[in-house]
Design a protein around this nucleic acid. Structure first.
Length: 325
DNA sequence: TGCCAGGCGGGGT
DNA sequence: ACCCCGCATGGC
């Protein structure tokens, strides 16, 4: 499929916003290349890709490629959703000043925002791949899905990029193809989830704004538990108060903050006590400042005060975009 | 080589 | 509200 160049717009980010830091986080090669961020925009019968660059005056240039006509305001809204270029986090930064893990997010890396995911389906795929797997394994699975099962689209006058397969594409390619991507037992869950999206038209739009109701709705998807459900909603809808608590996060909350073993419910209380309505956002940032290292190394790094992301040299959330492994 | 890694569902207590 | 097990796969 070829997407034709439609228009460019200029948008103004908030003071101090760091485009490159935000765009490179958890970006596959192709989604970010050191200069541009490419953001897929899915709408019923149309697909668009917004190419975003940062101009010398700090403003962002957004160029839209699409297969059908698409509103400028709609594209701007989607780019705002993913890159959060005008979001004010000053209230949050005040809360984490002095935090033993997140401190750098309020100082050296204060221009970083959470990179959102275009839609709930895409966020669910990412969440499924994170289950019971290391950072590297999880992102390998996700990358395989995108590159081997996704849609290859050419940008007019430019390069080709891969876009996450739609639910229908996953259903069509089937279980065996999913297994080839190294998903293991998760393959069944992903296929079942894809069927829900295919059968229930606009599944995402029906989700309530109320966290508990939205969570109950997506919990109906088999294989998507508390952790994955929250992660998907956090990424797809920027619901910062939803805390994806896994063994990794619970260990950090237990050993660094509470200084005692916490159960799941206690860990949730601790996260709320520390960060309030920002507890989910804190989990996202925590994975970044610790380079998503396995828990033993992550704890060691906190003890040594090495709680800043590595920007080159090793495979981390911030360098994922430069590796094809 | 066997164990573990940002889980989950189903079973039990 | 816990605890335990099996579940695919890849990395070390």
């Amino acid at each position: 499929m070829i997407l034709h160049r439609r228009f460019s717009i200029i948008v103004e980010p908030a003071e101090g916003y760091d485009f490159h830091l935000t765009a490179r986080a958890y970006a596959l090669p192709g989604e970010y290349d050191g200069v541009k961020a490419r953001i897929p925009i899915f709408e019923k019968n149309s697909l668009a890709i917004a190419e975003v660059t940062c101009l010398s005056d700090g403003k962002l240039s957004v160029t839209c490629y699409s297969n059908t006509n698409i509103e400028k305001s709609f594209v701007e809204e989607k780019v705002r959703h993913v890159l959060a270029f005008d979001e004010d986090l000053s209230e949050y930064h005040a809360i984490i000043r002095g935090d033993p893990v997140l401190n750098a997010i309020s100082s050296k890396f204060k221009g970083l925002r959470m990179k959102g995911v275009s839609n709930l389906w895409n966020a669910m795929l990412i969440a499924f791949c994170q289950q019971n797997a290391s950072f590297k394994q999880g992102w390998r699975m996700y990358r395989n899905i995108v590159y081997n099962m996704g849609l290859k689209v050419g940008l007019e006058g430019g390069i080709s990029v891969f876009v996450t397969p739609s639910p229908a594409m996953v259903v069509e390619q089937g279980l065996a193809k999913l297994r080839e991507q190294g998903l293991g037992y998760r393959a069944n869950y992903v296929l079942e989830a894809a069927k829900v999206f295919v059968e229930e038209e606009s599944f995402e739009e029906k989700l309530s704004e109320v966290d508990v109701e939205a969570y109950a709705a997506i919990k109906k998807i088999r294989g998507l538990g508390v952790y994955s459900g929250r992660l998907a909603l956090l990424l797809a809808q920027r619901r910062y108060s939803l805390t994806p608590l896994d063994r990794w996060t619970i260990r950090i909350l237990s050993e660094i903050y509470a200084k005692k073993r916490l159960s799941l419910t206690e860990a949730e209380e601790e996260a709320k006590r520390l960060w309030g309505k920002w507890s989910g956002l804190s989990v996202y940032f925590m994975t970044i400042v610790l380079d998503a290292e396995v828990i033993s190394k992550a704890l060691q790094r906190i003890a040594e005060g090495r709680v800043e992301p590595s920007l080159c040299g090793v495979l981390t959330p911030m360098t994922l975009w430069q590796y094809s492994w």
